[in-house]
């Protein structure tokens, strides 16, 4: 079955899981798995007040779709969707949602896990934490900025 366009969504407004879930209903599917990522109030021992997500939108959309397509091919699931927030989020808000429907639960669990793990690693989305002590920082960036720069340039082959 052809996947409808735009199954990976970026939104600067609150996500609505029930609306997202509705698109995954399918008579062939007996299993539905969803993952919700919420804003947590602490990280690495620091009290977090809110989060900010920033995305390189066109590339993030393309890369997100690529990961969903990989999940469909790899696990043979019928439907995979993902929605990710951008902008400022309060503690407890829904930051990312992944939903999968499939004939059986096993591949739905596997595909869901695959998607959230890969979204974290390659989609150009950045997260900034604002702490209770007034400090703030970009996750995964601040330690790198403090590290001495090596004249090392990693080549990443073009993807077609």
């Amino acid at each position: 079955m052809d996947a409808p366009v735009q199954q990976f969504i970026l939104s600067d407004a609150a996500l609505d899981p029930s609306a997202l879930r509705a698109a995954l209903h399918d008579g062939r599917c007996g299993g539905y798995v969803a993952f919700e990522g919420w804003v947590r109030d602490y990280n690495e021992g620091r009290r977090v007040l809110r989060l900010e997500y920033e995305a390189f939108i066109p590339l993030a959309l393309r890369e997100g779709e690529r990961i969903l397509q990989q999940a469909r091919e790899r696990f043979g699931v019928e439907h995979v969707r993902c929605a990710h927030r951008t902008g400022m989020l309060a503690v407890g808000e829904l930051a990312v949602w992944v939903g999968v429907s499939a004939p059986h639960r096993g591949e739905a669990f596997d595909a869901c896990r695959f998607v959230i793990d890969h979204i974290k690693h390659t989609v150009p989305i950045w997260k900034k934490e604002y702490y209770q002590d007034g400090d703030s920082g970009w996750i995964n960036c601040e330690q790198c900025a403090a590290a001495p720069a090596h004249a090392e340039y990693h080549s990443h082959p073009h993807r077609s």
């Binding site: 979204i119 974290k120 989609v123 989305i125 997260k127 995964n140 960036c141 790198c144």
Partner: peptide, 8 residues
């Protein structure tokens, strides 16, 4: 130039 990402 894309810094280390941190979605999810």
């Amino acid at each position: 130039f894309l810094p280390p990402v941190a979605g999810g």
